[in-house]
Design a protein around this nucleic acid. Sequence first.
DNA 1: GCCGGGCTTGACCGGTCGGTCGGTGAAAAC
DNA 2: GTTTTCACCGACCGACCGGTCAAGCCCGGC
Lengths: 232, 232
Amino acid sequence: MTELSTMRDGVANQAEASDRVLQILAEAGRLFASKGFEGTSMRDIALACGISKSLLYHHFSNKDEIYARVAVGSTLELYLFVRDRIPDGTPSQKIRAFMVATAEYFRRYRWAWIASTTAFWNDPDRQRQKERLTRRDRFENFLRGLIQEAIDAGEIRKVDVPMTGRLILSSLNWMHRWYNPNKSATPEQIADIFFDMIFNGLRSGELVELPGAASPKEPSKEPSKAGRRKSR
Amino acid sequence: MTELSTMRDGVANQAEASDRVLQILAEAGRLFASKGFEGTSMRDIALACGISKSLLYHHFSNKDEIYARVAVGSTLELYLFVRDRIPDGTPSQKIRAFMVATAEYFRRYRWAWIASTTAFWNDPDRQRQKERLTRRDRFENFLRGLIQEAIDAGEIRKVDVPMTGRLILSSLNWMHRWYNPNKSATPEQIADIFFDMIFNGLRSGELVELPGAASPKEPSKEPSKAGRRKSR
DNA sequence: GCCGGGCTTGACCGGTCGGTCGGTGAAAAC
DNA sequence: GTTTTCACCGACCGACCGGTCAAGCCCGGC
């Protein structure tokens, strides 16, 4: 080796990858997303790229490495992608921005996203997912920090922070199972709707707007015989 | 064999099946859930059951049929299981019961649940999932009916019904990815927490309780400069 | 006795898997 | 002009895949 590259391979900045490598990663991500890890063979990837199977092993040491570059690399970027899109503002505005940014990432890197959130997520034989979980944890902890911020600021009530984070991430993580890119709403719009539902709640009635607050979407038809559950 | 067959470890409603078949379904479900469909070989299933691979083919015609009995059979029962647990009451109480019942089903038939919601969900080559989707659709439509009921009764505001259903189901469907059975909270309790968050919303401040309503958990420290988003 | 049929088996099939190997041809370095 | 480097390929390997099959085992009825 003539010179040591400044970037070790674990950091996986894919900007310096060759076109061929990018093509392999793109096709592999698409295949992993649609057929799963075990269901996608190296022959499938080679065929999709129009190259020989041997060439895959010229650029990658094995199948796991291809998957790692698709999935681990993408989840690494997810945190940075989202973090850089959180504007200054109130904590709840940040939470909304978090959700919308995550949705944007999903839209832009959809196959990698699906591959990283779907395939063989819980095979106990492999610790391959360990690293992925670490990166995911950083992402999730970031959200929890925003939630705690919002609680401290009094913007949201004192809810269970990890559970709230799970609810928010569930709404985003499950999206790829039903989202249809040909339909009208963009993932960002969907994230916005979910934020509205989670933040403001579904309930109407029982509560009344403060004088200064914005008008509700719809005046409640009925003064609510709604089940007023105890706070358990 | 008769008594044992009525209900076996995590296998839903295989009433007329023999013990051996139930054992195969239970082990196969566990394996499918942890390693995926493609990642689980017939040898794995046979080994886990302590029988020969040939015996699997005596009881089932092929691998797909085992999967179908595990996954499709379980999702078939999901709708009936939940429907029978919806009590009389207000629509929002029904929605809460829907969520808790679904969580109970998840807890009781966890492996089958995971297998049916995880494995090869979007392989376009197979229409095996078609039938599963139909059953899932009936389940989801049932929820949408409850939501529409709640809107008509004025209990919840006029939200987008399909989108609301997706939010609720996301919180439940994603649970298997982070739920730890050794931790304290049961799935039913988690579903209850999620219902509370979604129904009442996270927000504090801006709204004030009606005189008759229960006291809030925490008075808002600040009169909320919270982002009062337009309804867009 | 011995007979038939449901369980159960090990040996086996064609095919595909991830991965390896030796080599080719063209450009880059010397 | 020679050597080195490098993207690339087709043939091939042992292991494992889903699935088959003829044959044993077991056990109640004759």
